[in-house]
Design a binder for these strands. Structure first.
Lengths: 183, 183, 183, 183
DNA sequence: TATGAATGAGTCTTCATTCAT
DNA sequence: AATGAATGAAGACTCATTCAT
């Protein structure tokens, strides 16, 4: 009757995405285990949140791997990334938002690793003359996150069709990034 | 020694923007009044948050008025809006983020009013042939909020220079929205 | 309806002396206040225990003052001390025992202050040729505490009459078990 | 890999002497077994503590046997007892202190048995005219325990040299503090 | 009106104990 | 016989809110 740690994390992610203030009790119940068992697997709430972050990081990294970010046309690479990561947008949005509100302390090394890979993509695009260079790759990265968050929430609240999600983000972002002839 | 309700709100906004989980006690102390007095002015935490929302809404509306959203070139109107609202970006980002995480129930009527004005701007731009029409004005509005949030947090975390803030948002957003000749 | 902090401490002392593991809830109830109020007055259990120690220290110091430890015959001074401190023996025994079991960390400065005064008494007795010098004043102090503790517990458990308490301690400490020739 | 019950008790005694609030988990780990196994050997924490008491009682009784309490000069018998029991003073002090704080209910029959033997020694001394008779043998017994406890703690805290321990107790108990003329 | 004081409700956390392998 | 896993029970602590001055 061993509890699947990964499964618990998934349930916690799903619940917290819906209700960020869910108590440890609610999380435990959602995962079908007792509060004490939840604590056995994740010592304290902070540990659980950190584990959730790592889950999100892992999932996003997997999407990056699958998207082969550093291959081919940067624009196409970005589109592939959005397509691959789409299933975890909601979760990423939660983590992103949560981080804004609650941290401020030290940032998980994992996020920095992700940032570096996105930075690299944007820089590559700029060097190859595909992306405009008057906006820093750091800001482009932040903007990507912001749009992913906005899109995910918009879907959740029924303001955007799920099927349009990646397209909407990609079009807006690339339209801005893409070097226009007349510029 | 009558308590200045507006002043209390300002202090609360400033504190909560820095620490979203601040307790009523911390808020009261930041405002220089007692917890009981805070409760006398805002019956309950929810009431305080709602008042904060209204403060944010009012401030944003004032920026909209000053920007004369429905006059002249839509692109210029958007730039004016960003310039006028810049001082409250941080606060707006907090409210936006807070809303995402904690509400989901009914949305304040005020936000809907704001939304309508932004919607109108984007629609006008689309009708005048300035903004692309393959992205809905609703999504454009969400994207605007998302980029404002991302920008404000990026500034707070030192990833973006404050002086580049509005320019970065405007360029990214308009570059995407602006109808390119060759498209 | 202001809660008398001192009174709460007294009640807590009385209860804990009887039941060392009493919960904060039990202590609060014994003091006739709510758990939350108890926490308002003493932030956490540790703070309460520390306050109890200070109460004990204060009471013992008052007894020392009243006994005029550094006046007259050291033997008489010791007897006076025992007589004056007798009402708080039970409480002191609790604190002494509690300290043995739970601390080991840093010792309250107050206890060190008490120790110094007792040390001084024994040293004075040794210098005046009244007390034997082959046992260090430090050990004599420890022995005094040990006998006070033993006596207090013996009374509590009905193995020693309260009226014989100070006499029993004083006689044993001063004269030992051995039957003296000259007595 | 049969668990050595005696060995577990020794480890538990050693740990609890240092940290009276050690959890079953800590005890189990100190003994190198799992919590579940600890529970299989001692049904519940109380059972473990009772077993520890019995271990202490057994060890103290063995010391009494070795000291031949009822032979020869009572004073010498007492000195022999202290010498024989010295290695277990620390443990006895722990049990004594623990008993004061946590029990108070019914006392282990074993302790009563020990008490009787000590009582007998003191009574014999009184009858033989060696010990003073104005202090009851019950109190003398309590005082002996108290001094053993005080001495053991004093050694632990570095206030008394281990080598002086039995001598310090014996001298104080037998001779008291007062400087005797004939000494 | 403003506030120090008090508290009910709820959360996190720990621990001793049981269960299934 | 031994143990990893699970949990009910209990305690500490916090917070929003109310009350009496």
């Amino acid at each position: 009757m061993a509890v699947d740690r990964e499964q618990v994390l998934k349930e916690a992610a799903a619940l917290l995405t819906r209700k960020a203030t869910a108590s440890m009790d609610e999380i435990a119940r959602a995962a079908g285990i007792s509060r004490a068992t939840l604590h056995r697997h994740f010592a304290g709430r902070d540990a659980l949140v950190r584990a959730l972050e790592e889950l999100g990081i892992r999932q996003f990294e997997r999407a990056m791997d699958a998207a082969r970010l550093d291959e081919g046309d940067p624009e196409e690479a970005l589109r592939r990334l959005l397509a691959e990561a789409e299933p975890v947008f909601k979760f990423l949005a939660f983590l992103y938002t949560e981080n804004q509100l609650f941290e401020g302390e030290q940032v998980n090394e994992g996020w920095a690793r992700l940032d570096r890979r996105i930075h690299a993509l944007f820089r590559r695009g700029q060097e190859e003359g595909v992306f405009r260079i008057d906006l820093s790759h750091v800001w482009l990265t932040e903007a990507l996150y912001g749009l992913i968050g906005a899109g995910a929430w918009a879907v959740l609240e029924g303001r955007l069709a799920r099927r349009e999600l990646t397209h909407s983000i990609a079009e807006l972002l690339l339209g801005g990034i893409r070097r226009s002839m007349e510029k």
